[in-house]
């Protein structure tokens, strides 16, 4: 039985399309006077955040509450890598509280897998971002946003759409999840970064890779800029922030080379002036704020499909 959402790679195309179509229905809820559905009444969703991420936590919290679930927020920051026992002990605590789903954000790649497969808890586990591994609900909300703007046909298909994902691919869980999911959904993904910010073995991913932003973006239907932390500079991944912005930042000049329909995305939080300039972030083609709105609908869809029935309708066991 499928019980968890750990990796975007666990989703079949049918799974992903079910989540996106469910999210499309649930997004309408935002326009209604009562933004609440009874589907998860009596269910308990725990937001277990070992890393600060107010926006993701709030998004999951809103999603769970709109489905009438009881929500417990559990911030366990700072105890993650000291001994590791904390993850297990925390899990046992949650189990004792009768959590039906645990939404987990953790600094260690694979922590949600451990939670799901260690036998510590029986609840469904939703990965809300683990280390430099994955962030599947972010990829789902990105695909949902793309589908609304670029989709064709009744299902808003992304078949053949060209998506450029630009920036720190090496450390980005958003890039990993998006590469997997967008490929599943039929889109053509090109990752753009300096060679130092690609992981070894990226050639085996179902994507194109490029070091040349200017060559890629005029053909793209969506350009997703990834956050680049200034600390990467001290790691020697690039010489200076200025050189990075010049070669891989999205500014007004580059935006002028985009096609008319091309949208600009960013998973947030943005480092304005680093990977994206303010005029681009605030341009009409920027859907960055809409991504946040869509995040709630997509997370509602995931929670509903995992917890709404007698057994989950989507997700992977492992």
């Amino acid at each position: 039985m499928k019980r968890h959402l750990l990796s975007a790679g666990d989703l079949t195309r049918d799974d992903a399309e079910l989540i996106l179509s469910t999210a499309a229905e649930l997004r309408e809820l935002a326009d209604r006077p009562i933004k609440k559905l009874p589907a998860l009444r009596g269910r308990t969703v725990v937001n277990l955040f070992f890393e600060d991420s107010t926006r993701t936590r709030i998004s999951f919290e809103a999603a769970a509450k709109r489905l009438s679930a009881d929500v417990i927020n559990f911030a366990a920051k700072g105890s993650s890598l000291s001994k590791g026992e904390s993850l297990k002990d925390t899990a046992l605590t949650l189990e004792a509280m009768g959590a039906d789903a645990v939404v987990v954000r953790h600094g260690a790649s694979g922590a949600p897998h451990r939670l799901a497969n260690s036998g510590w808890v029986r609840s469904s586990v939703v990965n809300a971002g683990d280390g430099t591994h994955e962030h599947p609900t972010q990829a789902l909300l990105d695909a949902f946003t793309m589908s609304r703007h670029l989709g064709t046909g009744p299902k808003g298909s992304l078949d053949g759409r060209r998506i450029a994902i630009v920036g720190d691919v090496l450390h980005s869980r958003v890039a990993r999840s998006n590469a997997l999911l967008l490929h599943t959904l039929g889109a053509e993904v090109t990752l753009v970064a300096p060679p130092t910010l690609f992981p070894v073995g990226v050639e085996s991913w179902p994507v194109e890779i490029s070091y040349d932003l200017d060559a890629v973006i005029p053909k793209a239907d969506a350009v997703m800029m990834l956050r680049v932390q200034r600390e990467r500079m001290s790691g020697g991944f690039f010489p200076t922030a200025r050189e990075y912005s010049r070669r891989y930042g999205l500014d007004g000049r580059r935006m002028a080379t985009l096609q008319d329909h091309t949208i600009v995305m960013h998973p947030g939080p943005m480092v304005r002036g680093m990977e994206i300039t303010a005029d681009v972030a605030d341009a009409d083609r920027s859907v960055i704020v809409e991504q946040v709105t869509n995040g709630v609908a997509v997370r509602m869809a995931v929670l509903y499909l995992l917890l709404g029935g007698s057994e989950p309708a989507v997700g992977g066991e492992e």
Partner: peptide
């Protein structure tokens, strides 16, 4: 270090 480490984010 190889394709799997890149995918697993380790």
């Amino acid at each position: 270090e190889g394709p799997l480490s890149g995918r697993l984010g380790l």
